[in-house]
Nucleic acid binder design. Structure first.
Length: 220
DNA sequence: ATCCCGAGGG
DNA sequence: CCCTCTGGAT
Protein backbone atom coordinates (compact mmCIF):
# COMPACT_ATOMS: atom_id res chain seq x y z
CA UNK A 1 0.00 0.00 0.00
CA UNK A 2 1.38 3.38 -1.02
CA UNK A 3 2.03 6.04 1.59
CA UNK A 4 -0.18 9.13 1.70
CA UNK A 5 2.86 11.17 0.65
CA UNK A 6 3.27 9.00 -2.46
CA UNK A 7 -0.40 9.37 -3.37
CA UNK A 8 -0.07 13.14 -3.00
CA UNK A 9 3.03 13.11 -5.16
CA UNK A 10 1.24 11.21 -7.92
CA UNK A 11 -1.60 13.73 -7.79
CA UNK A 12 0.76 16.72 -7.95
CA UNK A 13 2.85 15.19 -10.74
CA UNK A 14 -0.19 14.47 -12.91
CA UNK A 15 -1.43 18.01 -12.33
CA UNK A 16 1.93 19.36 -13.49
CA UNK A 17 2.15 17.09 -16.54
CA UNK A 18 -1.47 17.36 -17.69
CA UNK A 19 -3.15 20.39 -16.07
CA UNK A 20 -5.71 20.57 -18.87
CA UNK A 21 -6.63 16.89 -19.27
CA UNK A 22 -10.17 16.58 -20.58
CA UNK A 23 -12.61 14.27 -22.38
CA UNK A 24 -11.35 14.08 -25.95
CA UNK A 25 -14.46 12.41 -27.36
CA UNK A 26 -16.34 14.87 -29.57
CA UNK A 27 -19.84 15.56 -28.24
CA UNK A 28 -22.35 18.41 -28.08
CA UNK A 29 -24.77 16.99 -25.51
CA UNK A 30 -25.29 14.01 -23.16
CA UNK A 31 -26.89 11.95 -25.95
CA UNK A 32 -23.83 12.30 -28.19
CA UNK A 33 -21.54 11.63 -25.23
CA UNK A 34 -23.20 8.38 -24.17
CA UNK A 35 -23.18 7.14 -27.77
CA UNK A 36 -19.53 8.16 -28.30
CA UNK A 37 -18.41 6.45 -25.10
CA UNK A 38 -20.37 3.32 -25.97
CA UNK A 39 -18.61 3.27 -29.35
CA UNK A 40 -15.19 3.78 -27.77
CA UNK A 41 -14.90 0.25 -26.39
CA UNK A 42 -11.68 -1.31 -27.68
CA UNK A 43 -11.20 1.63 -30.04
CA UNK A 44 -9.00 4.72 -29.94
CA UNK A 45 -10.85 7.98 -29.38
CA UNK A 46 -9.13 9.37 -32.48
CA UNK A 47 -10.96 6.78 -34.56
CA UNK A 48 -14.23 7.33 -32.69
CA UNK A 49 -13.94 11.04 -33.46
CA UNK A 50 -13.53 10.24 -37.15
CA UNK A 51 -16.79 8.30 -37.12
CA UNK A 52 -19.19 10.15 -34.81
CA UNK A 53 -19.53 13.45 -36.73
CA UNK A 54 -21.02 11.58 -39.69
CA UNK A 55 -23.17 9.51 -37.38
CA UNK A 56 -24.57 12.51 -35.51
CA UNK A 57 -25.11 14.44 -38.74
CA UNK A 58 -27.26 11.60 -40.07
CA UNK A 59 -28.98 10.91 -36.74
CA UNK A 60 -29.00 14.09 -34.60
CA UNK A 61 -31.60 12.90 -32.05
CA UNK A 62 -32.45 9.70 -30.20
CA UNK A 63 -35.56 9.50 -32.35
CA UNK A 64 -33.49 9.58 -35.55
CA UNK A 65 -31.14 6.90 -34.31
CA UNK A 66 -33.94 4.72 -32.95
CA UNK A 67 -35.71 4.61 -36.31
CA UNK A 68 -32.58 4.09 -38.42
CA UNK A 69 -31.94 0.68 -40.02
CA UNK A 70 -29.21 -1.25 -38.20
CA UNK A 71 -27.42 -1.83 -41.49
CA UNK A 72 -27.24 1.92 -42.10
CA UNK A 73 -25.79 2.51 -38.63
CA UNK A 74 -23.27 -0.28 -39.18
CA UNK A 75 -22.15 1.39 -42.38
CA UNK A 76 -21.52 4.65 -40.52
CA UNK A 77 -19.39 3.07 -37.78
CA UNK A 78 -17.86 0.23 -39.74
CA UNK A 79 -14.31 1.44 -39.15
CA UNK A 80 -14.65 0.72 -35.42
CA UNK A 81 -14.04 -2.70 -33.97
CA UNK A 82 -17.03 -4.63 -32.65
CA UNK A 83 -19.22 -2.56 -34.98
CA UNK A 84 -22.08 -5.04 -35.27
CA UNK A 85 -22.68 -5.15 -31.52
CA UNK A 86 -22.18 -1.42 -31.25
CA UNK A 87 -24.69 -0.62 -34.02
CA UNK A 88 -27.30 -2.85 -32.45
CA UNK A 89 -26.60 -1.40 -29.00
CA UNK A 90 -26.80 2.30 -29.83
CA UNK A 91 -30.04 1.79 -31.78
CA UNK A 92 -31.56 -0.07 -28.82
CA UNK A 93 -30.12 2.57 -26.51
CA UNK A 94 -31.88 5.32 -28.46
CA UNK A 95 -35.11 3.33 -28.42
CA UNK A 96 -34.90 3.02 -24.66
CA UNK A 97 -34.26 6.76 -24.23
CA UNK A 98 -37.52 7.36 -26.10
CA UNK A 99 -39.67 4.76 -24.39
CA UNK A 100 -38.43 5.17 -20.82
CA UNK A 101 -36.74 8.57 -20.49
CA UNK A 102 -38.67 10.96 -22.75
CA UNK A 103 -35.76 11.15 -25.14
CA UNK A 104 -33.30 12.33 -22.49
CA UNK A 105 -30.20 10.63 -21.09
CA UNK A 106 -30.87 9.50 -17.50
CA UNK A 107 -28.74 11.29 -14.90
CA UNK A 108 -28.53 8.40 -12.45
CA UNK A 109 -26.33 5.31 -12.44
CA UNK A 110 -29.17 2.79 -12.46
CA UNK A 111 -30.83 4.38 -15.48
CA UNK A 112 -27.54 4.66 -17.34
CA UNK A 113 -26.35 1.10 -16.72
CA UNK A 114 -29.71 -0.23 -17.89
CA UNK A 115 -29.01 1.23 -21.33
CA UNK A 116 -27.82 -1.33 -23.92
CA UNK A 117 -24.04 -1.22 -24.33
CA UNK A 118 -23.58 0.91 -21.21
CA UNK A 119 -21.71 -0.66 -18.30
CA UNK A 120 -20.05 0.65 -15.17
CA UNK A 121 -17.22 2.41 -16.98
CA UNK A 122 -19.37 4.19 -19.56
CA UNK A 123 -21.88 5.22 -16.89
CA UNK A 124 -19.07 6.70 -14.79
CA UNK A 125 -17.79 8.76 -17.72
CA UNK A 126 -21.26 10.13 -18.52
CA UNK A 127 -21.99 10.87 -14.87
CA UNK A 128 -18.78 12.84 -14.32
CA UNK A 129 -18.40 14.52 -17.73
CA UNK A 130 -22.01 15.33 -18.59
CA UNK A 131 -23.60 15.70 -15.17
CA UNK A 132 -20.74 16.62 -12.80
CA UNK A 133 -21.49 13.66 -10.55
CA UNK A 134 -18.33 12.41 -8.82
CA UNK A 135 -17.23 9.10 -10.38
CA UNK A 136 -13.90 7.42 -11.18
CA UNK A 137 -14.18 5.58 -14.49
CA UNK A 138 -11.61 2.78 -14.75
CA UNK A 139 -10.58 1.93 -18.30
CA UNK A 140 -7.56 0.11 -19.65
CA UNK A 141 -5.26 3.13 -19.09
CA UNK A 142 -6.42 3.87 -15.55
CA UNK A 143 -6.08 0.20 -14.61
CA UNK A 144 -2.63 -0.20 -16.14
CA UNK A 145 -1.24 3.00 -14.59
CA UNK A 146 -2.73 2.25 -11.17
CA UNK A 147 -1.13 -1.18 -11.16
CA UNK A 148 2.27 -0.08 -12.45
CA UNK A 149 2.51 2.70 -9.86
CA UNK A 150 1.46 0.31 -7.10
CA UNK A 151 -1.71 2.19 -6.15
CA UNK A 152 -3.46 -1.17 -6.29
CA UNK A 153 -2.43 -4.81 -6.74
CA UNK A 154 -1.81 -6.57 -10.04
CA UNK A 155 -4.47 -9.16 -9.27
CA UNK A 156 -7.19 -6.61 -8.51
CA UNK A 157 -10.23 -6.58 -10.78
CA UNK A 158 -11.73 -3.36 -12.19
CA UNK A 159 -14.16 -3.02 -9.29
CA UNK A 160 -11.35 -3.23 -6.75
CA UNK A 161 -9.24 -0.72 -8.68
CA UNK A 162 -12.11 1.77 -8.73
CA UNK A 163 -12.77 1.30 -5.00
CA UNK A 164 -9.12 1.89 -4.16
CA UNK A 165 -8.89 5.01 -6.33
CA UNK A 166 -12.03 6.48 -4.75
CA UNK A 167 -10.67 5.68 -1.30
CA UNK A 168 -7.23 7.19 -1.86
CA UNK A 169 -8.12 10.35 -3.77
CA UNK A 170 -10.44 13.18 -2.76
CA UNK A 171 -13.92 13.11 -4.26
CA UNK A 172 -13.57 16.55 -5.83
CA UNK A 173 -10.54 15.34 -7.76
CA UNK A 174 -11.97 12.05 -9.17
CA UNK A 175 -13.20 13.40 -12.47
CA UNK A 176 -10.09 15.43 -13.28
CA UNK A 177 -7.79 12.63 -12.11
CA UNK A 178 -9.59 10.17 -14.35
CA UNK A 179 -8.64 12.24 -17.39
CA UNK A 180 -5.13 12.84 -16.08
CA UNK A 181 -4.64 9.08 -15.64
CA UNK A 182 -5.89 8.64 -19.22
CA UNK A 183 -3.47 11.23 -20.62
CA UNK A 184 -0.61 9.84 -18.53
CA UNK A 185 -1.38 6.31 -19.74
CA UNK A 186 -1.96 7.28 -23.34
CA UNK A 187 0.98 9.59 -23.93
CA UNK A 188 3.57 8.67 -21.30
CA UNK A 189 3.01 5.42 -19.38
CA UNK A 190 1.98 3.64 -22.58
CA UNK A 191 1.08 -0.03 -22.72
CA UNK A 192 3.96 -0.70 -25.08
CA UNK A 193 7.29 1.07 -24.63
CA UNK A 194 6.38 3.29 -21.66
CA UNK A 195 8.63 6.33 -21.31
CA UNK A 196 10.18 5.27 -18.01
CA UNK A 197 13.53 6.97 -18.58
CA UNK A 198 11.88 10.39 -18.58
CA UNK A 199 9.27 9.64 -15.92
CA UNK A 200 9.17 11.95 -12.88
CA UNK A 201 7.78 9.06 -10.85
CA UNK A 202 10.44 6.51 -11.79
CA UNK A 203 12.10 6.45 -8.36
CA UNK A 204 8.86 5.36 -6.71
CA UNK A 205 7.69 2.99 -9.48
CA UNK A 206 8.52 -0.70 -9.12
CA UNK A 207 7.47 -1.46 -12.67
CA UNK A 208 9.57 1.40 -14.01
CA UNK A 209 12.63 0.28 -12.07
CA UNK A 210 12.17 -3.24 -13.37
CA UNK A 211 11.87 -2.00 -16.95
CA UNK A 212 14.87 0.34 -16.74
CA UNK A 213 17.11 -2.19 -14.99
CA UNK A 214 20.44 -2.34 -16.81
CA UNK A 215 19.76 0.75 -18.90
CA UNK A 216 21.40 4.09 -18.36
CA UNK A 217 19.24 6.63 -16.60
CA UNK A 218 19.79 10.20 -17.83
CA UNK A 219 20.70 12.62 -15.04
CA UNK A 220 19.79 15.77 -16.94
C1' DA B 1 -13.90 -17.11 -19.18
C1' DT B 2 -15.09 -16.03 -23.78
C1' DC B 3 -16.80 -13.62 -27.64
C1' DC B 4 -17.31 -9.42 -30.39
C1' DC B 5 -13.74 -6.99 -34.23
C1' DG B 6 -11.38 -2.91 -37.20
C1' DA B 7 -7.47 0.32 -37.36
C1' DG B 8 -2.93 1.64 -36.26
C1' DG B 9 1.85 1.17 -34.30
C1' DG B 10 6.15 -1.25 -33.96
C1' DC C 1 3.50 -10.65 -37.52
C1' DC C 2 1.88 -9.17 -32.57
C1' DC C 3 -0.17 -5.89 -29.41
C1' DT C 4 -3.36 -2.33 -28.04
C1' DC C 5 -7.23 0.80 -28.11
C1' DT C 6 -11.35 5.29 -22.47
C1' DG C 7 -15.74 -2.53 -22.63
C1' DG C 8 -20.02 -4.95 -22.42
C1' DA C 9 -22.96 -9.01 -22.56
C1' DT C 10 -23.34 -13.85 -22.10
Amino acid sequence: MLRVAEIDRIERTLEEMFPDAFCELIHQNPFELVVAVALSAQATDVLVNQVTPGLFAAYPTPSDLATAPVAAIEEKIKRLGLYRNKAKNIKALAERLITLHEGEVPTDRVGLEALPGVGRKTANVVLSVAFDVPAFAVDTHVERVSKRLGICRWKDNVTQVEATLMKRFKRERWSKLHHQFIFFGRYHCKAQRPNCLECPLLDMCREGKKRTKGTTIPVD
